[in-house]
Protein backbone atom coordinates (compact mmCIF):
# COMPACT_ATOMS: atom_id res chain seq x y z
CA UNK A 1 0.00 0.00 0.00
CA UNK A 2 1.33 3.39 -1.02
CA UNK A 3 0.54 6.06 1.57
CA UNK A 4 0.05 9.70 0.55
CA UNK A 5 -0.23 12.09 3.42
CA UNK A 6 -1.76 15.56 3.26
CA UNK A 7 -1.64 17.92 6.19
CA UNK A 8 -3.42 21.23 6.69
CA UNK A 9 -2.87 23.88 9.35
CA UNK A 10 -6.37 23.91 10.76
CA UNK A 11 -7.30 24.02 14.43
CA UNK A 12 -9.45 20.95 13.95
CA UNK A 13 -11.10 19.16 11.04
CA UNK A 14 -14.08 21.00 9.55
CA UNK A 15 -15.91 17.71 9.32
CA UNK A 16 -15.09 14.82 11.58
CA UNK A 17 -15.62 12.31 8.78
CA UNK A 18 -13.44 11.72 5.75
CA UNK A 19 -16.29 11.97 3.24
CA UNK A 20 -17.27 15.48 4.37
CA UNK A 21 -13.67 16.64 4.14
CA UNK A 22 -13.34 15.14 0.66
CA UNK A 23 -16.39 17.08 -0.53
CA UNK A 24 -15.08 20.28 1.06
CA UNK A 25 -11.72 19.96 -0.72
CA UNK A 26 -13.43 19.11 -4.02
CA UNK A 27 -15.42 22.35 -3.81
CA UNK A 28 -12.45 24.61 -3.11
CA UNK A 29 -9.84 25.87 -5.57
CA UNK A 30 -6.24 24.66 -5.44
CA UNK A 31 -7.12 21.43 -3.67
CA UNK A 32 -9.90 20.44 -6.03
CA UNK A 33 -7.92 17.64 -7.75
CA UNK A 34 -7.06 16.10 -4.41
CA UNK A 35 -10.71 16.44 -3.36
CA UNK A 36 -11.89 14.66 -6.49
CA UNK A 37 -9.46 11.78 -5.94
CA UNK A 38 -10.69 11.51 -2.37
CA UNK A 39 -14.29 11.58 -3.54
CA UNK A 40 -13.53 8.65 -5.86
CA UNK A 41 -12.15 6.78 -2.89
CA UNK A 42 -15.62 6.91 -1.36
CA UNK A 43 -16.86 4.69 -4.14
CA UNK A 44 -16.22 0.98 -4.05
CA UNK A 45 -12.96 1.20 -5.94
CA UNK A 46 -10.19 -0.91 -4.46
CA UNK A 47 -7.46 1.37 -5.86
CA UNK A 48 -7.89 4.28 -3.50
CA UNK A 49 -8.68 4.38 0.18
CA UNK A 50 -8.88 7.40 2.39
CA UNK A 51 -8.97 8.29 6.04
CA UNK A 52 -8.46 11.35 8.16
CA UNK A 53 -6.79 11.59 11.50
CA UNK A 54 -9.43 12.14 14.11
CA UNK A 55 -8.14 11.82 17.65
CA UNK A 56 -11.68 12.11 19.00
CA UNK A 57 -12.75 8.95 17.26
CA UNK A 58 -12.31 6.03 19.65
CA UNK A 59 -12.26 3.42 16.95
CA UNK A 60 -9.71 5.35 14.94
CA UNK A 61 -6.82 2.89 14.93
CA UNK A 62 -9.16 -0.04 14.31
CA UNK A 63 -10.41 1.74 11.19
CA UNK A 64 -6.85 2.29 9.99
CA UNK A 65 -5.98 -1.36 10.60
CA UNK A 66 -9.08 -2.46 8.70
CA UNK A 67 -8.25 -0.18 5.76
CA UNK A 68 -4.68 -1.46 5.61
CA UNK A 69 -5.91 -5.05 5.75
CA UNK A 70 -8.70 -4.59 3.18
CA UNK A 71 -7.01 -2.31 0.69
CA UNK A 72 -3.65 -4.05 0.42
CA UNK A 73 -2.93 -2.84 -3.13
CA UNK A 74 -4.58 0.55 -2.82
CA UNK A 75 -3.21 4.02 -2.38
CA UNK A 76 -4.05 5.29 1.07
CA UNK A 77 -4.82 9.00 1.22
CA UNK A 78 -4.37 10.30 4.68
CA UNK A 79 -5.71 13.68 5.80
CA UNK A 80 -4.41 15.51 8.85
CA UNK A 81 -5.98 18.84 9.76
CA UNK A 82 -4.47 19.71 13.08
CA UNK A 83 -1.01 21.32 13.06
CA UNK A 84 -0.35 19.68 16.41
CA UNK A 85 -0.09 16.26 14.81
CA UNK A 86 3.33 15.66 13.36
CA UNK A 87 3.54 13.97 9.96
CA UNK A 88 6.53 11.87 10.97
CA UNK A 89 4.71 10.36 13.91
CA UNK A 90 1.72 9.36 11.78
CA UNK A 91 3.93 7.98 9.00
CA UNK A 92 5.79 5.85 11.51
CA UNK A 93 2.57 4.51 13.02
CA UNK A 94 1.15 3.63 9.59
CA UNK A 95 4.42 2.07 8.53
CA UNK A 96 4.41 -0.09 11.65
CA UNK A 97 0.84 -1.18 10.95
CA UNK A 98 1.72 -2.04 7.37
CA UNK A 99 4.81 -4.04 8.27
CA UNK A 100 2.80 -6.07 10.75
CA UNK A 101 0.43 -7.04 7.91
CA UNK A 102 3.20 -8.26 5.61
Amino acid sequence: MNTKLFSFSFEKPIFSGFSGSARFLAGMEGVQDLGNILLNSLEDSKNVAGIQYNPDQEEYWNIIRKKIKTFTDAELYFLIWSPKIRDKKIRKLISNEQSQRR
Binding site: F15, S16, G17, S19, G20, S21, A22, R23, F24, A26, G27, M28, E29, G30, V31, Q32
Partner: peptide, 28 residues
Protein backbone atom coordinates in the same frame (compact mmCIF):
# COMPACT_ATOMS: atom_id res chain seq x y z
CA UNK B 1 -25.39 16.05 9.29
CA UNK B 2 -21.91 16.24 7.74
CA UNK B 3 -22.68 14.26 4.60
CA UNK B 4 -25.77 16.37 3.94
CA UNK B 5 -23.95 19.70 4.40
CA UNK B 6 -20.85 18.74 2.44
CA UNK B 7 -23.04 17.46 -0.42
CA UNK B 8 -25.00 20.73 -0.44
CA UNK B 9 -21.69 22.63 -0.49
CA UNK B 10 -20.38 20.70 -3.48
CA UNK B 11 -23.64 21.24 -5.41
CA UNK B 12 -23.61 24.93 -4.47
CA UNK B 13 -20.05 25.44 -5.72
CA UNK B 14 -20.92 23.80 -9.04
CA UNK B 15 -23.93 26.08 -9.39
CA UNK B 16 -22.04 29.27 -8.42
CA UNK B 17 -19.24 28.67 -10.93
CA UNK B 18 -21.68 29.75 -13.67
CA UNK B 19 -21.44 33.27 -12.25
CA UNK B 20 -17.90 33.31 -10.91
CA UNK B 21 -15.43 30.67 -12.03
CA UNK B 22 -12.94 31.67 -9.33
CA UNK B 23 -15.29 31.54 -6.36
CA UNK B 24 -13.47 28.52 -4.88
CA UNK B 25 -10.20 30.46 -5.12
CA UNK B 26 -11.69 33.43 -3.27
CA UNK B 27 -12.97 31.15 -0.52
CA UNK B 28 -9.57 29.48 -0.27
Amino acid sequence: REVEVSSLFLQAMESLKEYDSNIGGQFM
